[in-house]
Write a protein that binds this DNA or RNA. Sequence first.
DNA 1: CAACTGTATATGTTATATATACACACCAGA
DNA 2: TCTGGTGTGTATATATAACATATACAGTTG
Lengths: 137, 137
Amino acid sequence: MSERTEIAVQIGPISPAAPDALYQQIVNGFKREIGEGRLTGDTPLPSFRLLAGQLLVSIITVRRAYEELEREGIIYRRQGLGTFVATDGRERSRAAKRRHAQALIRSAIREAKEAGLSAAEAKAFVNRVATETLSEE
Amino acid sequence: MSERTEIAVQIGPISPAAPDALYQQIVNGFKREIGEGRLTGDTPLPSFRLLAGQLLVSIITVRRAYEELEREGIIYRRQGLGTFVATDGRERSRAAKRRHAQALIRSAIREAKEAGLSAAEAKAFVNRVATETLSEE
DNA sequence: CAACTGTATATGTTATATATACACACCAGA
DNA sequence: TCTGGTGTGTATATATAACATATACAGTTG
């Protein structure tokens, strides 16, 4: 078992005003941190109480986020011990992100066509926005 | 004022199981119909009761959808008369769809980068999915 | 047994959806 | 002409479900 170290988790900012639910924002934050390799296999996640205190959120909300992450095989929980990044958590997290990105692009294509664009125009639109978005950073 | 004709509105299918709320699905359906030109300026929309009956949904849900569409300037309501497509409804609907599509693409780019892809890889991913999606139809 | 960990139950809050009753516009018929 | 019927949209009070919470319970370790 990995030794427990103090982890400066950078999940936030969490906001009740955001379009996503609080627990979903926490889920997305961990998928990002794990997907980008800042949290690796068997690393302990912060406890319910610690993270709840840091994010100014209830224990139940953290619990729900961890449940969702465990359901996707990205982390695992052990009662009395803690919560840890799964061995293949990074790969699963990345796969989930890619699937999500793919679904978003398909929705964007559909929206573009419903805006009256032809297939060729829709593709050009997607390319243009993608290029602009990537050049802004 | 336009004469009232029976309109075979093709908004559905509406499902409570869908990720979007019922009223939002109705909003999206009318934006599509108006954006693609099947409903033009000053055309009367179905009444609350008629549409509610067709979609197996309550009057309030239809009302909420129409409120949202009026807020965006796509339709207008007249008490005692009915609800009608705004003169510039098509243009506004298309603009809304384009804005939505743009937001979706930006989210997709962000997700792709959080999946560990570089900027170039993310752009290639977007292009590939867009091409695949458009060739499937 | 003390101090951590995750777990479970009952409760409050908010967005969504509903049923019912109300107000306005038109128009056919007295 | 005017009056009532039937269509329209409008308003209020009420369920339902997802989300978030507080509090108490159970397992692990030293």
